[in-house]
């Protein structure tokens, strides 16, 4: 299996990754109904309007859930084991897959998080750190 891991920039996801190249985590805001969404799509899932704008996330978020990989599904990640993958909810509403920059055994459901940009395989990615120190 190829060790190369990179995002697919075709379609509406291209703008998401381009914003991250510029150091910003952005989500889509519907100009017609105001709904916020990720992942990027061609239409708003609330009102189906194609009139979508990009808005920068302020950085506050909450931990919805997480898992810890104890075996690699891809050779590029075998040196990271055990590593976490989390579902994070931005304060603005959209959710995304991410990693939490904290010991795996310190993670708690609904813990407050703060955005911290990181890097994975040369691509800037949004990661998150607990907002208060944990034991």
């Amino acid at each position: 299996m190829s060790a190369e891991v990179k995002p697919d920039r075709t379609g509406p996801a291209g703008a998401f990754w381009s914003a991250l190249d510029g150091g910003r985590l952005e989500f889509q805001r519907c100009r017609a109904c105001g709904a916020a969404q990720l992942p990027a799509r061609e239409e708003c899932t609330a009102c189906l309007s194609p009139d979508l704008a990009w808005e920068a996330a302020q950085g506050g978020a909450t931990l919805i859930s997480w898992v810890v990989y104890h075996r690699p599904y891809h050779e590029a990640f075998k040196d990271r084991i055990p590593y976490n993958v989390a579902v994070v909810e931005l304060d603005e509403g959209p959710r995304l897959i991410s990693n939490i920059l904290a010991p795996n055994d310190s993670l708690r459901i609904d813990m407050p998080l703060r955005l911290e940009l990181g890097e994975s395989f040369g691509q800037t990615i949004p990661q998150f750190r607990p907002r208060v120190p944990t034991g």
């Binding site: 697919d8 996801a13 990754w17 859930s65 990989y69 993958v85 897959i97 991410s98 459901i109 691509q123």
Partner: peptide
């Protein structure tokens, strides 16, 4: 999808994600 950059692979981990939320 694009979430491979975070190490998000496989069917099984999706169930683990739901399970952790249920536990919490």
């Amino acid at each position: 999808g694009d979430d491979s950059l975070y190490g998000w692979f496989g069917t099984l981990p999706g169930y683990a994600m739901i399970m952790q939320r249920h536990i919490g």
